[in-house]
Structures are given as structure tokens and as C-alpha cells.
């Protein structure tokens, strides 16, 4: 097992953990945390492939990850604002109890 494979397996493990968390947990905040973990595993893949790729001087992987991090930050801000707005309406953060769109 080479180093690149090690990074890719860590990334796959992070993705699987995030997926399992997003599917099993019933708390909205933890579902968002699972999605963040999945985004981070994709970032790790980008950096690993950039480092072990053909042309690391082109900085494509680094650029992609910088943009990806900023998009993930915007997503987290809007997502947590939505969670707070929904909590104010339903008085719960349990996904099973948020079962109607119109309220």
C-alpha cells in the first residue's frame, strides 16, 4: 500500500462515516456535520491527487479545494440559519418530527 492509497483510504473512510452519520442520526445539526465530513473527504482526495499527479506546479487541486472550502463555509452558514429558523417554528431539532412543509 503506497502513501497515495493511504490518503485515499482515509478519505473513503471519512466519506463512509459522514454518510452513515447523515443517514442514521436524527438531529439536524448532526446531519449537517455528516455532510461537512463528506465534503472534507472530497477535499482530501483533491489534495492527494494534486500532490501525486503529473503536474503539481499547475496548482489545480489546491485551487479547487480553496473554492470548495469557501463554498462549504457558505453552505454551513445558510444551513445553520435554516436550522435555527426551523427550530423556532417546530421547537425541535429531530428530523422525524419535521414532517410537513407548510407547518
Amino acid at each position: 500500500m503506497t502513501t497515495l492509497q493511504g490518503y485515499l483510504i482515509v478519505s473513503a473512510l471519512l466519506f463512509a462515516v459522514g454518510l452513515a452519520g447523515a443517514l442514521t442520526r436524527r438531529n439536524v445539526i448532526l446531519v449537517l456535520v455528516g455532510i461537512e465530513l463528506m465534503l472534507n473527504s472530497a477535499n482530501l482526495n483533491f489534495i492527494a491527487f494534486w500532490r501525486y499527479g503529473e503536474h503539481p506546479e499547475l496548482l489545480t487541486g489546491v485551487m479547487f479545494v480553496i473554492f470548495s472550502i469557501s463554498i462549504a463555509a457558505a453552505e454551513a452558514a445558510v444551513g445553520l440559519a435554516l436550522i435555527i429558523a426551523v427550530y423556532r417554528h417546530y421547537k425541535t431539532t429531530n428530523l422525524d418530527q419535521m414532517d410537513s412543509l407548510k407547518g
Binding site: 500500500m1 503506497t2 502513501t3 497515495l4 492509497q5 485515499l8 483510504i9 473513503a12 473512510l13 466519506f15 463512509a16 462515516v17 454518510l19 452513515a20 443517514l23 500532490r51 501525486y52 499527479g53 503529473e54 503539481p56
Partner: peptide, 25 residues
Amino acid sequence: GVAFLVFSVLSISVLSGSMANRTAQ
């Protein structure tokens, strides 16, 4: 189970792929 399936498919493809002989530039 679904997450474990995803992880096993990903790791099998990583371990059996052609990236084994790739070294860092």
C-alpha cells in the same frame, strides 16, 4: 450497511487500481 458498502467498494477500487506505483513528484 450502505455506508460500509460504499467504503468497501471505494477501498477495493483504490487498492486494486493502477495508482500503486505512483510516486510523488
